[in-house]
Design a protein around this nucleic acid. Structure first.
Lengths: 197, 197
DNA sequence: GTCTATAATTTGATAGAC
DNA sequence: GTCTATCAAATTATAGAC
């Protein structure tokens, strides 16, 4: 079985990498572990057990660990940007768009109980294989670009894309580390209040 | 050689854990690795090599890895709170205090090229040994409390302690992951602008 | 406090059969 | 695509000598 997905990004269609069902299962498990404990929290044997194959078979799908890491980050990036949708829809104002950005992050936190993948990996960027660090970098560049476009013609003093994204990422860490999800909501409230002006 | 340190916290003197010079060296190396790549980026052998002893000798100073992790976090917490100083000095206003908070974070980033320890560990809280996760939690509780006190009688709409801390933590991740230190400065600018009103 | 020696486990990775 | 078998390396940890 093959899963295909298309996402509209930067005014052109980008075809997602196509994965077999088993490869997608592996990516799911790997993403879960990475979002919980970082890049080193993923082991081929654990993944193999979770998806019901042997670790050598995981190497068939993803030859080296950096390949797996990069694939997880790229798929995650496409998923997030897909969930964000168009940043320049005519029928929306900046407030509605940023509200959606916050909601996407909020959902990830409350639904999975896990924080943003690139928040975890971004924090350990210095020790990541170049392949993976580069993919994480691209995640942020793309989400920053999305936010920049979304803010066009914003009325209030909403802040810059970096300021908004930083609040979201930091809010997640605070919520996770203190076990107080309300602290994330508090940062979202701040973002939206400033945007409303 | 023995290093002693006293810090004024929560209106009472708290004596720092006392470490021999070698134990302090180990903690230095461990902190560096953790801030670069997280808890798993620390290995007893690497630490031993760096401080010029054998890995079994590291176990003499810190029996188990969680003991080492907890010690690193506690010492880091005391250092940061020591650098922050009193949050209720009469001769200062809220702006000056929060400016100092931002400067402490900024210095860590530019001086060591490493982000906040509890930013990295906080992101992987879910997979940390309880001992370590608890120490990280206490770091945030204490810095949040410091910020709350520092903001007393603030004039502008500076935001809550959680909003300010989230911006700082997230700004660090953004700066590190995109290799653009300016993005951290941008978040600091936002924090201080809002505080100035 | 530091060492040697070693155990026990985990991990990333490969060769080759089916 | 998945398996068995295996390897080399790394890791946490302990026992006991100096």
């Amino acid at each position: 079985m093959v899963v295909n997905a298309y996402l509209l990004i930067d005014n052109k269609f980008m075809e997602n990498q196509t994965y077999t069902a088993k490869a997608a299962e592996i990516l799911d498990a790997a993403e879960r572990h990475m979002r919980a404990g970082g890049y080193d929290a993923v082991s081929f044997r654990d993944l193999a057990d979770e998806v019901g194959i042997k670790s050598s078979s995981v190497h068939y799908h993803f030859p080296q660990k950096p390949d797996l890491g990069e694939a997880v980050v790229r798929r995650y990036t496409d998923t997030v940007l897909g969930a964000l949708g168009a940043p320049d829809d005519a029928g929306e104002d900046a407030y509605a768009r940023i509200e959606r950005l916050c909601a996407v992050y909020r959902t990830a936190l409350s639904q999975d109980g896990l924080i943003c993948l690139c928040c975890v990996l971004g924090a350990e960027t210095r020790d990541l294989p170049d392949q993976v660090a580069s993919a994480v970098n691209q995640f942020f560049e793309r989400v920053l670009a999305w936010t920049g476009t979304a803010l066009k013609n914003a009325t209030g003093q909403g802040g810059t894309p970096a300021q908004i994204l930083a609040s979201l990422q930091g809010g997640m860490i605070l919520a996770m580390a203190t076990k107080q999800p309300a602290l994330f909501d508090e940062t979202v409230t701040g973002i939206l209040e400033r945007l409303a002006g």
